[in-house]
């Protein structure tokens, strides 16, 4: 798990998470939300967040494999 921008400030650079096989990123987000009040606030469903699996933007229905790198972050604002 990696976090960026406002999420990184709230939750740190990242963390290791074990997931049941077949879980998607929505399930991962729910699991993180349940893990602490800080996570619940930063990852709340009302917030528009984007996610990446192995450094490619994906929907939350994407399923991470073993050792996958998942990232949650706010909408991007480069340029």
């Amino acid at each position: 798990m990696r976090y960026f921008a406002a999420l990184r400030e709230a939750l740190g650079d990242g963390e290791e998470v074990e997931l049941p096989e077949g879980s998607d990123l929505a399930a991962l987000r729910d699991r993180l939300i349940a893990s602490s009040p800080r996570h619940a606030e930063a990852l709340a469903r009302g917030r528009a967040l984007r996610c990446a699996l192995d450094q490619v933007l994906v929907r939350e229905s994407a399923q991470p494999g073993d050792g996958a790198e998942v990232a949650f972050f706010p909408p991007v604002t480069g340029g």
């Binding site: 990123l25 469903r45 528009a48 939350e60 909408p75």
Partner: peptide, 12 residues
Amino acid sequence: NADGPAAGEPAA
């Protein structure tokens, strides 16, 4: 990007 999910609506 900017027009994210409405409140309470999972992006999935």
